[in-house]
Structure formats: structure tokens, C-alpha cells
Write a protein that binds this DNA or RNA. Structure first.
Lengths: 157, 157
DNA sequence: ACCATATTGAAAATGGTATTCAATATCAAT
DNA sequence: ATTGATATTGAATACCATTTTCAATATGGT
């Protein structure tokens, strides 16, 4: 059976000579149950509700810690906030972002990944990570103008 | 013959009821001759050398103006700076970014673009723009074994 | 339990970017 | 050209997400 996130965190902390604290565990639990792509402030508000004692700075620090521990991905979209995404065992994926309503959809496309590797190889680059973001209008924000060929079922995550 | 950037800017300004100023023209000329992916601060330093009277805020404002006028692309990589890239008639391209030395290479790959459109269509998204960035080690930095303290003057997180 | 030190919370600092405001420049109308 | 309405400038200040400081507290090895 897989290790729980709390166990993984404890292991990371021990390995780094850092300490387990109740704050870190509480924040981790709330982080896991929060939606994807939470900002520090969004998470802080959730944390505050459940554990009024925990401070703003601790949430910030802890989120960065999660990223360092490999439990979360840190992403900066174009809205000025750093967002964190819990990295359970979910595959790598990229994002579609609505510039009007802020909706974030996820997708993965193996063929794009392969082409990226080709590009990297051609440039003698050793890729560590990448980001691919498509900005535009989601279906709802495009208004009532329905485009031909845009009517199939949804396969959103 | 194509219109010059200065002409394009003038046209945009006139169309918006805005005014042509010597500052805007000077900044545009320096912007064009500056390297790709300049930050506001980098450009300000160049501007200051050539035209000591022009202020910091004007450079910031003017760079955003260029982006609004379609003369520049505004990009935020992961180094905390907003960078601007002169958009002459250069094709769209994406970036390879060295996480060690900061080198930025450009590439374009039509097959990736096509796949992106497929993804968008499948999700009923109307793409306005996109960003694809591959972060990793450039050829030169793959050889370095030392953890090298950052050497650059400033601009390091 | 002791102790060295990692961590916390609150406040203040940081740093890139945005805005305010009085002075000045631009442009259309005269 | 001169005028007048207003867009623009430069300097200073505000903004705001994020980071850091620091004294108090909690943690883990002994």
C-alpha cells in the first residue's frame, strides 16, 4: 500500500533534519482536501477556519516546504498568484486557462511531451520540467455563439 | 515596404486618442535594439544611459503600452520579472530556459502547435495565446559539477 | 527532563509594479 | 502660431504578494 502524504512529509522532514509539527500536518491535510491550484491566501483562509491559531506566514512557508518535499507543484499562472497543486500520484499534466472566468482545466498529451523531448535534444538541453499553458475562452465564456463542430460531449476532468 | 515600429506605434496612439511623445519614441528605439526578453529594469538602465531625463515609471508604462499596441509580447518566466520581447514580424516561438545560468533559447515547432489546437478543440476552448517553456540545463551547464554560487549582478531570487 | 535549535506568529521588510499629483507637453481648434 | 483641453511625464509614494525578522515556543535526541 502507498504511503500517506503525512508519512511522506515526515520522512522528508526527518531526512532533512527538520521537525514535524502539528501545524505542518494540519496544513497538509487541508491542502490535500482543498481544490487543485490553491493559492497561499486561499489555503490560509481554509486553514484559519479550522485552526485559528495558525498564522499567515506559516502557511506560506509550509506550502514552499511541500513543494521542496515533492508533495506539491508550484505554479505561477498570469494572475499574479503562486498556486500549489497537490501531487499525489497524478500524472503530469498541463493547463487550459480561461482568461475571462479563471476556469482551469487540465489535460495531458503524450505526443506533445514526445515532441518537447525532441526539441530539447536538438538544443542539447536536459529538461527538468516544463509548463504548457493555453490561455483563451472556455466554452461558457465564448457566449452563445456556437461554433460548428464544437458540440460533442465533454471530457473534462 | 513594411511600416516601421515607430509608425505602427504612432498609428496605434492616434487610433486610441493617445499622444506621441519623444519619450515613447526613444524608448521604442532602445527597446528594439535591446536584446530579446528584456525586463523593465534592464530597459530602464539602457534608456537612462542614452536619455537621462526619462524616468523609471515611464519605462514601465511604455512597455505595457507596447504590449497593448501589439509591438511587444509580455512574458513572465519563473524568475519574478516581467519580460518584454519585441514582436517585429518574428513568428511565434516558445522557450528553453536554463535553470542554472538563465540562458533563454527559442524554438518553434509547428507539430506541437497543431496538437495544442486539437487539445483546445476537444475541450471547447478558444485559444487566445499560449506559453510553452522547457526548464532544464543547457549544454554548457550540464558539464558543470560545482553548485556554483550565482554570479550575475542582480536579479536573482 | 534538559538542551540545542527548528519552528511559529505577528509585525515589518522586501521588491517588482502600479498609481498619485503637480508640472509639462501634445494636438486640435481657433 | 496661440490657445485650451487633456494626455503624459517624473518623482515620490502606494500597492500587494511574498519573505524575513525576532522573541517566544515546540520538537527530538540525549
Amino acid at each position: 500500500m502507498r504511503k500517506t502524504a503525512v508519512e511522506l512529509l515526515a520522512k522528508y522532514l526527518a531526512g532533512q533534519g527538520l521537525r514535524s509539527t502539528t501545524q505542518r500536518d494540519k496544513i497538509l491535510q487541508i491542502f490535500i482536501n482543498a481544490g487543485r491550484h490553491v493559492s497561499a491566501e486561499e489555503l490560509y483562509m481554509r486553514v484559519m477556519k479550522a485552526h485559528p491559531g495558525i498564522g499567515y506566514a506559516t502557511v506560506y512557508r509550509t506550502l514552499k516546504l511541500f513543494a521542496a518535499a515533492g508533495l506539491a507543484d508550484e505554479r505561477r499562472f498570469e494572475d499574479g498568484f503562486t498556486r500549489y497543486e497537490y501531487k499525489a500520484s497524478s500524472n503530469h499534466h498541463d493547463h487550459l486557462i480561461c482568461t475571462k472566468c479563471g476556469l482551469i482545466l487540465e489535460f495531458e498529451n503524450q505526443r506533445i511531451e514526445v515532441l518537447q523531448q525532441d526539441v530539447a535534444k536538438k538544443n542539447h538541453f536536459k529538461v527538468q520540467n516544463h509548463k504548457l499553458e493555453l490561455y483563451g475562452l472556455c466554452e461558457a465564456c465564448q457566449g452563445k455563439k456556437i461554433q460548428a463542430g464544437n458540440k460533442d460531449t465533454k471530457n473534462r476532468k
